[in-house]
């Protein structure tokens, strides 16, 4: 289990590194996290903590979450045992004061099994506007309800990943033209030297010849015997 988690981490970090300087304007956002620990059609959200992303470009975040109270721990354990969903509401406040609310859902049992180790994926568009905040649990399989001891359900260990919008690919005409250019030059210089050995070059002609010779030599003695 651990190795997958670390694999996930490595990849996420790589992803971050490669996109880190794409957005045009850097900014910071604060995310207020609220969660619902009772399964209901109209869930009641209670405060879970705050996340401040200081720089969207670098993806650095400070996470401030309070431990769960014994009541909340019980509620979460109950939620996990009954295979319900754990819902997270994130209220994102951008630099300019605009607010957006996002909703995200994970399986409560998966959250409990991971001992409250969840990841927050903050996706931003090309301008640096937050378009989605999603909570995910790094795991290889899902569960259908699980009972986890209460002491493991106290502290959230959350990692925040700011996920940028990649710049789209552009048709690579330059290198193609270079390649054509190279081929043309090679042609002008003369034939491309074939460095393969004689056998490698002409095996398809040699093999049938050898076979024919073997076959004919195998039949010849019989014929000679027959004529005798």
């Amino acid at each position: 289990m651990l190795c997958y988690l670390s694999a996930f981490l490595v990849i996420s970090l790589n992803v971050q590194k490669s996109y880190s300087s794409n957005i045009e304007y850097d900014g910071s956002v604060t995310i207020r996290l609220q969660h619902a620990l009772v399964a209901s059609e109209d869930p009641v959200f209670t405060d879970r903590g705050n996340v401040t992303v200081h720089s969207l470009r670098l993806g650095q975040a400070t996470i401030n979450q309070r431990p769960l109270s014994p009541d909340e721990q019980l509620q979460l354990r109950d939620l996990a045992a009954k295979n319900h969903f754990y819902q997270l509401k994130s209220i994102v406040t951008a630099n300019d004061g605009s607010q957006k609310t996002f909703l995200s859902t994970v399986k409560a049992c998966m959250l409990a099994e991971s001992e409250l180790d969840d990841r927050l994926s903050v996706s931003i568009d090309y301008m640096g506007r937050v378009i989605a905040v999603t909570s995910i649990i790094a795991s290889k399989s899902t569960c259908e309800g699980a009972v986890v001891s209460l002491e493991k359900l106290k502290h959230f260990t959350t990692s925040v990943y700011v996920r940028h919008t990649e710049p789209g690919p552009i048709p690579d005409t330059a290198s193609y033209i270079q390649k054509l250019e190279r081929e043309r030059e090679a042609k002008e210089k003369g034939e491309v030297k074939d460095n393969r050995s004689f056998l490698a070059k002409y095996w398809m002609y040699i093999v049938p010849l050898v076979i024919i010779m073997v076959v004919s030599s195998a039949t010849n003695p019989d014929a000679q015997q027959g004529s005798q």
């Binding site: 995200s104 994926s121 090309y126 378009i131 999603t134 995910i136 990649e166 710049p167």
Partner: peptide, 11 residues
Amino acid sequence: TGLILYATSHK
């Protein structure tokens, strides 16, 4: 889950 797995933009 609503997770954005890939995002790209063409200016």
